[in-house]
Design a protein around this nucleic acid. Structure first.
Lengths: 220, 220
DNA sequence: GCCATATGGATTGCATACAATATCCAGATT
DNA sequence: AATCTGGATATTGTATGCAATCCATATGGC
């Protein structure tokens, strides 16, 4: 069922990856005509894709001037990460009591895939997806789909900067260790400790990103 | 600046009002052709408007079948209101210490406008906007624009049901009293009491809506 | 020399027209 | 009788082309 994908959706998915991957820096303009040629479609599906990305906070439309990739201020990034702490500890708190053995197994298997990917080389492009998959595996049993959707939005909006931080500071290994610890605490059902760890896990990432951004600002 | 509004935006704004106003119940289909005739535009801006509304959670696209207004389950509504409690107490907590005399005056004047609207007759259409304006006046000094945007999303998504509850249960007056109390607590800087009141204010609304929906379900 | 205004060029926003897809219903098959 | 097949129909999804708008540059008045 519903295996059909419109061209607009295809363009949106690919363009999202390109933006999150850092191909378009700063507030660079995305010309509809050029993108249409890129994807060999007309400008209509490109426009629709850009509208979708606008609603996700990745681009901004200026009437008759076109779409530009958004650039988040350091303050905005801090705010988004504070929101992540608030919402993710909230769902984790609700998820842990519901975790089944199958849920824990699934989260564990995602972690093992991390390791395989790490060992096989720097598949950093996919790391963000794995990261989100692990967090999602822990959160899903909360039975709070609307909340999970908002968390997904926050991740998308700040995704570009998360990847940047990972590349710059190479602290994937540290995150990986914290993930293992988080899974263990969840297995033990220690809600408070797990939430505290999650909070510092997210805040550390935010501080790393802020540091990188502020360094870049000074050098520019 | 930027006083220009595309037709797609105009259609989106108007259609949003119509959906929130309850003109399209249940999962009713929104045919692009009919809407295009309604607004005397082509289907392109209609499609773009529908895409915008989809990102706001008001409609859903089914490929080649069209757009349908979404219908939230009682569980989803409860979840959205729980999220509102979480996020709104969060911003209120951050806003109260920053409230200036001008902020309090502004919030008070919004309240006075309520009263005027109430006395002049049942301008229920506008009440939701006033309601949001009051809450926004209290929250804005938090200096957390991203969080405010998410709260706005939650309000939009659940807006249809808020209006329904107000019409059915006529508890506008109660909400109005609570607003005055909330403003007074904010003026006194009593963060904890204000947040507790806000929490029950939102939860009461959620329970009222759930009661109405469950009654409707039984009668249907 | 400086500010207001007009004009050219580029790009978007939209209307029209066509292609692709899902659904429905009739008819055949088991 | 129930299920499956296939074509007709309605509706969406997209391509093309044109009109509207913005920005930059040049021009004229003071």
């Amino acid at each position: 069922m519903a295996t059909f994908k419109t061209r607009a959706q295809y363009v949106a998915d690919d363009l999202r990856e390109r933006i999150l991957g850092g191909e378009f820096k700063g507030g660079s303009q995305l010309r509809q005509d050029a993108l249409a040629r890129d994807y060999d479609v007309s400008r209509i599906p490109v426009r629709e894709a850009l509208l979708t990305l606008e609603s996700e906070g990745l681009v901004e439309f200026h009437a008759h001037r076109g779409a530009f990739t958004t650039e988040l201020s350091v303050a905005a990034i801090r705010e988004l990460f504070d929101l992540r702490v608030l919402l993710e500890t909230y769902v984790l708190r609700h998820a842990i009591p519901n975790l089944t053995a199958a849920d824990l197994d699934h989260a564990g298997s995602v972690l093992r895939q991390y390791d395989a990917a790490l060992d096989s080389g720097s598949q950093i492009d996919n790391w963000s997806d794995y990261n989100f998959a692990f967090h999602h595996a822990l959160y899903a049993p909360s039975g709070l789909p609307e909340t999970l959707a908002m968390i997904g939005q926050l991740n998308t909006k700040s995704g570009r900067y998360i990847r940047m931080q990972l590349v710059y500071t190479r602290e994937i290994e540290k995150a990986e260790l914290e993930h293992r610890e988080l899974l263990e605490l969840a297995r033990q059902g220690d809600v408070d400790k797990a939430c505290r760890l999650l909070e510092s896990h997210i805040k550390d990432a935010a501080e790393g990103i802020a540091a990188v951004l502020e360094k870049n600002l000074r050098s520019a």
